[in-house]
Write a protein that binds this DNA or RNA. Structure first.
Length: 541
DNA sequence: TTGCAGTCAATATC
DNA sequence: GATATTGACTGCAA
């Protein structure tokens, strides 16, 4: 009966307690084929232990940055349940041990050596995760992730960065060996970690791995060894190739994908990477300011005007949106940490917190208005909340924003719901003033407000120009979005992102504000969407 | 279909 | 040489 109910009416993850998540984890493991080995023998006496392990997983992680003080109640929370033989304490202990073990093994197994040539094709025993951690017992990284308490992603990355730099260890080595990610991904992750509650299971994985690694007393040593081994291998290779002159292939040490079988088709297909010219980026940014979510038509136009492929334009928008969002997260976190103190937790709690701003540029322009309206909406959990978490924070933040240099008229985005909203955008809304150099560009000329072209102009919100600085720091709030779930676990969250309200954000606010503002557009867009559901009539203008 | 999260991997920059 | 940036891709979810 429980199964039936669960299958037909699964609760969203965020609404589940640790205990409640267990069945889903089991299902996931089962789906992944990881239950096969009796890892999680659901029934039978084994249950006890198994469950234990599952739950206990949390501990290991906790040692580290789990939100600093948080000390989540983890296991405790799960008490009831039928089987819960595991009362918190002991089970936890045993578990802890279990978990702890994992650390060491981190690199073991297949990774024992990084990529080195030798690496056997990884046997692959593990379906999904080939990485290091896998070795351990039955605990899969997924289990750890699923059961782990909220981790302080920012703190973790900070520590990792420190350890790496202090020991002169590179991101590539760390990434490939410990995280199973490439250097670029590691760099991005370390520089712009998203708050735990904003991450998907998959996205949490690297943080769990980092935490485990940090907990491993021999972590540095192991990496160092690895580094040495790599170096040796590299030298060897180098020598040999030198002699025979193999023009050589990739000295890369990492991962050998060579599966023997296929002769690596590599080269051929490689299409050259598209590199957008500054003018093109400018134009796209401008377009984004006007319409963060351009219609296909607009995209086409943009592509045509810039002489780019539509897919490039589409990708650019996707990436830009998502990156801006990420930056906002960091700001939030930083802001929080700074002021820190109490704030209760993360985003979630932060309802009223301001956002920092550190800069960024990336999104320039975007300012748009901030509209608290939007903020409100979100914050209250309103629609925004709805929008996946994501928009949430960022947007919210954006909302707060407002700043902008000169107060732009239309700034306030207002809660779109009302429909129209987006008034400003289109032309008037657009940043008329400083629109970048349109003229100069030649080829792709500065897209004269591409946005305008589109019909959807309406959607976007106010444009803002780029340098918005926004001075005011009004604290607004928002950010709440961060998802309700988070809210649920105050303990840990708190520590993570405490947000001080006041903290000096103002000072630096500007930079980011822009971004935030940009996000406003997103918010608006979404709100509109939501609104439109009810009234299909679109707001075209 | 659309948008997003997470990554990769080519480049840029330091 | 290491790290940062960023266009593109994959898989998912709504």
């Amino acid at each position: 009966g429980s199964v039936s109910d669960m299958l037909s009416r699964p609760k969203p993850w965020s609404k589940l307690t640790q205990k409640g998540r267990e069945p889903f984890i089991r299902m996931q493991l089962w789906l992944n084929g990881e239950l096969g080995q009796g890892v999680l023998p659901v029934q039978g006496q084994q249950q006890g232990p198994v469950l234990h392990s599952v739950t206990s997983l949390q501990d290991p992680l906790q040692q580290g940055c789990v939100s600093s003080e948080s000390t989540p109640k983890t296991s405790a929370s799960c008490s009831p349940a039928p089987e819960s033989p595991m009362s918190s304490s002991e089970s936890v202990k045993s578990l802890t041990e279990l978990v702890q073990q994992p650390c060491p093994p981190i690199e073991t197994s297949k990774d024992g050596k990084p990529p080195e040539p030798s690496d056997p094709p990884a046997s692959d025993s593990q379906p999904t995760t080939p990485l290091p951690l896998s070795g351990h017992s039955a605990l899969s990284i997924q289990e750890l992730v699923a059961m782990s308490p909220e981790l302080d992603t920012y703190g973790i990355t900070k520590r990792v960065k420190e350890v790496l730099t202090d020991n002169n260890l590179g991101q590539r080595l760390f990434g490939e060996t410990i995280l199973g990610l490439t250097q670029g991904s590691v760099s991005d992750l370390l520089a712009r970690p998203k708050p735990w509650h904003k991450l998907s299971l998959k996205g949490r994985e690297p943080f769990v791995r980092m935490q485990l690694w940090l907990n491993d007393p021999n972590n540095v040593e192991k990496l160092m060894d690895m580094k040495r081994m790599e170096k040796k291998a590299y030298m060897k290779r180098r020598h040999s190739s030198v002699s025979d002159s193999q023009p050589c292939e990739p000295p890369s040490v990492g991962i050998d994908y060579s599966q023997g079988a296929s002769p690596q088709p590599q080269h051929q297909l490689k299409k050259p990477r598209v590199v957008l010219a500054p003018e093109e980026k400018e134009a796209l940014k401008r377009a984004y300011q006007q319409k963060p979510y351009p219609s296909p038509k607009t995209i086409e136009e943009l592509a045509t005007q810039l002489n780019l492929k539509t897919s490039t334009v589409i990708n650019w928008f996707h990436n830009y949106r998502s990156r801006i969002r990420r930056e906002l997260f960091i700001e939030e976190i930083q802001a929080g940490s700074q002021g820190q103190a109490g704030a209760s937790d993360s985003p979630s709690a932060r309802s009223s917190r301001p956002a920092p701003s550190s800069e960024g540029d990336s999104c320039d322009g975007v300012e748009a208005a901030e509209g608290r309206g939007a903020a409100d909406a979100e914050e209250s959990g309103g629609p925004a909340a709805a929008t996946k978490s994501q928009g949430g924070p960022a947007e919210a933040a954006a909302a707060e924003e407002r700043g902008e240099e000169a107060p732009r008229p239309a700034e306030k985005p207002e809660p779109p719901p009302s429909g129209t909203q987006a008034p400003q955008d289109t032309d008037e809304g657009r940043p008329r003033a400083p629109p970048p150099p349109e003229g100069p560009l030649d080829g792709p000329r500065p897209v004269p407000n591409p946005a305008a072209a589109g019909e959807d102009a309406a959607t976007s919100a106010a444009p803002g120009e780029r340098p918005a600085r926004a001075r005011d720091a009004a604290p607004s709030s928002a950010l709440p979005s961060t998802s309700a779930p988070a809210a649920r676990r105050p303990s840990s969250l708190q520590s993570l992102f405490g947000l001080p309200e006041a903290a000096g954000r103002d000072s630096r606010d500007n930079p980011l504000r822009k971004k935030k503002a940009a996000n406003l557009n997103s918010i608006i867009h979404r709100l509109e969407k939501a609104a439109s559901r009810e009234e299909p009539i679109e707001w075209e203008f």
